[in-house]
């Protein structure tokens, strides 16, 4: 007999999933990524407690994270510059979940900061610390908290987190743009 209703799929509960046939596997694949020309230099800088960027004289950006070519101008970047390391919070989140979506009790602060001494949006993602949920805001001046020199390995985690920078004047980024 011909089916009159077309099958659209059969939902399974977690319990049913345990009963029906399924196969479990865990792929075993490992990688060693060469970090590349630009990032090798950048990570070596972190180990020395420095934030390094690459200039592009054509679009007048300082590229952080640095790269050896500018993807917009499609030309070789020009030179290495050291930035002061301070910056402002561009955006942030207060996260109650870990990388596998498991819940965590004490929320962590993450976000994007833009480095001082460079054009807008020259920045990276990182953690924020020593700040309360009520105090953290876009435009907040921040500074890096480095691991002690002996513990640094040349990784983004050589910076533990960025914390509020006392006594800094709020950047113009902190002004809320009014809707026109």
């Amino acid at each position: 007999m011909k089916e009159t209703v077309k099958p659209r799929g059969k939902p399974l509960s977690g319990e049913e999933m345990k009963q029906v046939c399924h196969v479990v596997a865990r792929p075993q694949v490992k990688y060693a990524w060469a970090v590349g020309v630009a990032m090798s230099h950048f990570l070596a800088g972190l180990k020395q407690g420095k934030i390094l960027g690459r200039t592009c004289v054509q679009c007048e950006r300082i590229l952080v994270p640095p790269r050896m070519f500018c993807e917009r101008c499609y030309r070789t970047t020009d030179e290495w510059v050291e930035l002061p390391g301070t910056g402002v919070i561009e955006t942030f989140s207060i996260s109650y979940i870990d990388t596998d979506a498991n819940r965590i009790k004490e929320p962590i602060f993450v976000g994007v900061l833009a480095f001082d001494g460079a054009p807008p949006h020259s920045g990276i993602m990182h953690y924020f610390g020593e700040v309360s949920q009520d105090a953290i805001h876009i435009g907040m001046p921040v500074e890096p908290v480095w691991k002690p020199g002996g513990e640094r390995v040349g990784a983004i985690t050589d910076i533990k987190y960025f914390r509020p920078r006392e006594g800094a004047r709020p950047s113009s980024n902190s002004k809320r743009r009014k809707r026109g």
């Binding site: 561009e90 955006t91 989140s93 979940i97 990388t99 993450v110 993602m125 983004i156």
Partner: peptide, 24 residues
């Protein structure tokens, strides 16, 4: 893998950060 993954990110972060910036 070099700059982001060592921070153990969750994809929801990126949306949260974008949403925060949009609201602001």
């Amino acid at each position: 893998p070099i700059l982001d993954r060592p921070l153990k990110p969750n994809l929801v972060w990126i949306f949260a950060m974008e949403m925060q910036r949009y609201m602001h």
